[in-house]
Nucleic acid binder design. Structure first.
Length: 313
DNA sequence: AAACTAGTCAACCGCTAGTCA
DNA sequence: GTGACTAGCGGTTGACTAGTT
């Protein structure tokens, strides 16, 4: 199917900034006939604009219920908390702020809030603090597997590399399918002496998109701060709270089920999918056992697979 | 005063989902 | 089931402005 372009230059349609006269025509037409029928509206209203342009002008500027001017502190707080919940879903955020448009909020986020959060040491994508390690992310040619270690010697280094390789496999396999922060939290932290930064190969395109998008990527970064319990758990009343799904006994690396409130919301939206994800992750871990990494699959652990199913059901 | 730079934001573009004939 | 069309969304662009050199 070949789609006819919305705004064809050869039709003499105007682009760029709207004049007061055009605004007047559009406003009076919509006031008389109501919103909708944007495709035919320009002709009926006597405008040399495409319908899409008219809809946008109305929605973002001319609508009478639009609140203009500076964002208040309350509004800013709302944007931040809604962004933590929805990510870059500007329309969803705008629904929580009457009188503000998605475009306005998006611009305000990109020009004000984002910078302020970075200044405060908060990652605007994940809303978590930016650790010193993350500020020092290696160049892409070096990040396929990078291990930042404490001075525990070469033996420990080799052990950690094995686990990092495993984590890297998980990242490669699952990173594109679920929210990155969710995946990071599911897999959890490393041992108390080890900080692992592991990633799937990142090409230039995903580099670019990662800078402006909350979308899941195959680039998984895990920082082991040895303080997994600092993550607020949305499952505090759950009987399986604080349990470990996997435990790399030899290297004392834990793969935990800690989730924070935001992640819980994400999971809540797609429980079935995540249930499947957990099953697949378990199979994947079992396969990995053949690589001599001592893992305890969930169905052999004291936490039964059923528990995990119930968890996400 | 002129040139340059950085910030802001309205508008555009490409894409997708939903609806209807 | 298919194609045409509409509405809406998120990312990007570019014109404008203010500040700096």
């Amino acid at each position: 199917m070949v789609r006819t372009p919305c705004c064809r230059a050869e039709l003499g349609l105007k682009k760029g900034a709207w004049t007061p006269g055009e605004d007047q025509k559009l406003t009076s037409y919509v006031n008389r006939h109501g919103e909708g029928g944007w495709r035919t509206l320009p002709e009926k209203a006597g405008l040399k604009r495409c319908g899409k342009s008219c809809r946008l002008r109305w929605a973002n500027y001319l609508r009478p219920d639009i609140k203009r001017g500076e964002f208040t502190e309350d509004e800013e707080r709302s944007i931040i908390s809604l962004h933590a919940l929805h990510g870059n879903k500007w329309a969803a955020i705008a629904r929580g702020l009457p009188g503000r448009t998605d475009n306005e909020i998006k611009n305000y986020w990109n020009t004000h809030i984002k910078k302020r959060l970075i200044k405060k040491g908060v990652d605007p994508l994940t809303h978590k603090s930016i650790s010193a390690n993350l500020q020092d992310i290696p160049k892409k040619q070096d990040i396929n597997q990078t291990i930042i270690m404490s001075d525990d010697g070469p033996d420990h280094s080799a052990k950690v590399k094995k686990s990092a390789r495993f984590l890297n496999r998980v990242a490669n396999r699952f990173g594109k399918r679920i929210n990155q922060s969710v995946l990071s939290e599911i897999i959890g932290s490393g041992g108390t002496h080890t900080t692992i930064t592991t990633s799937a190969t990142v090409d230039s395109e995903s580099d670019k998109s990662a800078s402006s998008s909350f979308a899941p990527t195959s680039n998984l970064l895990m920082t082991a701060n040895g303080n997994a319990t600092s993550s607020p758990s949305a499952f505090s009343e759950s009987s399986i709270n604080d349990r470990l799904m996997y435990w790399d006994k030899e290297y004392n690396i834990e793969f935990s089920t800690f989730l924070n409130d935001e992640d819980f919301m994400v999971l809540e939206e797609s429980c079935a999918e995540n249930n499947e994800f957990m099953k697949e992750l378990t199979r994947f871990l079992q396969e990995d056992e053949t690589d001599n990494i001592e893992m305890m699959p969930v169905n052999e652990h004291q936490d039964s697979f059923e528990d995990i199913d119930n968890y996400f059901a």
